[in-house]
């Protein structure tokens, strides 16, 4: 009886055939992502090292700032387990309209198209999957990856100037690589922090992590940089740290500061975001949007200013 060849030798002489059509479907899925995303000029992630720094608030208000400037804007909320963007934009209780071409996203203030897990859930229902959540974190990761892929591929985003993606809080380390994998043309990430010592230490990790993944850090936003007195409008510091210093140390553009503003928070809670460009908080976000535009187009700046 002839001696059985080792598997490596056997495989080297064989031609692979995708007869179960799994790879073909996965490639089709990715092409669908490319097709949808190809109509969007700028794709920007908003992430943070720590939770509770106001990342969703920043994402929402950045999206509004760009929409106010006349751009076509989309906002993708991939905080799958704690989606709050719809509530902030007054879209709670809305759903996707499912059509043969794809899912039509609800439209928020200033024509912002919004996609969120919230639009697939019953009111106040948590995200619970049918799969073996208790058995396999690997499965859960794969499931969430596919959900994100469907958000990118199946939503009828149309042509947009900007798509902002609100990431889950804290150390949800699996989402940035998933997005970077689906969107190799990603423009970069805005990182949000607050000026506390604890948060600024963690934000350094976020910057290093984004760079490790090949995601360009477009800039750092310092949220809750102070508080605005609701009587006299004066600003006072809330923490003693300084995110601008971290930005310098880490060699990333500092995009600006946003003091804590009760009016801004209350408006988000009501689902009626502040839109008046003369309001102090709105002005802060408009200034950050302007700097973000410059960070995105710094080569254009170099062409004109060098």
């Amino acid at each position: 009886m002839a001696e059985e060849k080792d598997l490596k030798t056997v495989l080297s002489n064989m031609k692979y055939k995708d007869d179960a059509k799994v790879q073909e479907q996965i490639v089709d899925q990715l092409l669908q992502v490319k097709m949808r995303m190809g109509r969007i000029t700028r794709k920007i992630l908003v992430m943070s090292g720590k939770g509770g720094v106001g990342k969703s608030m920043t994402t929402v208000n950045l999206a509004l700032a760009f929409a106010r400037a006349g751009h076509k804007v989309g906002l993708l909320d991939i905080d799958l387990n704690g989606p709050c963007v719809p509530a902030m934009l007054g879209l709670k209780g809305q759903h996707f309209a499912l059509t043969p071409e794809g899912a039509v996203p609800p439209m928020g203030p200033l024509g912002i198209k919004v996609a969120s897990m919230e639009f697939l859930l019953k009111p106040d229902a948590p995200v619970r999957w049918k799969g073996p959540m208790e058995l396999s974190p690997v499965w859960l990761g794969l499931q969430e990856m596919s959900v994100i892929r469907e958000f990118l591929a199946d939503i009828l985003w149309g042509e947009l100037d900007y798509l902002f993606t609100d990431l889950p809080p804290g150390a949800a380390a699996d989402k940035p690589p998933v997005l970077a994998g689906y969107l190799p043309e990603l423009d970069g990430a805005v990182i949000v922090t607050i000026p506390s010592e604890v948060a600024t230490q963690v934000v350094k990790k976020s910057i290093a992590y984004a760079r490790d993944l090949g995601i360009r850090v477009l800039g750092l936003v310092e949220n809750m940089s102070g508080t605005v007195c609701h009587r006299c409008g004066a600003e006072e510091p809330l923490f003693s740290g300084d995110a601008e210093k971290i930005a310098r140390e880490m060699d990333v553009p500092f995009l600006g500061r946003v003091p804590f503003d009760r009016a801004l928070g209350a408006a988000a809670d009501r689902g009626e975001p502040l839109l008046d460009p003369t309001l102090p908080s709105v002005r802060h976000f408009d200034a950050i949007a302007e700097r973000l535009t410059q960070a995105l187009e710094f080569k254009k700046l170099m062409a004109s200013l060098l």
């Binding site: 179960a20 059509k21 479907q25 996965i26 759903h95 499912l98 059509t99 697939l120 019953k122």
Partner: peptide
């Protein structure tokens, strides 16, 4: 199932957000 593929190939294209909708325990 989490890959969103049908073994052996699809007979019709997937619906929008099909995998997400079908795998949620309690969808709207």
């Amino acid at each position: 199932q989490a890959l969103g593929v049908k073994l052996g190939g699809r007979t019709e294209p997937a619906g929008p957000m099909e995998l997400t909708r079908e795998t949620l325990k309690d969808p709207s």
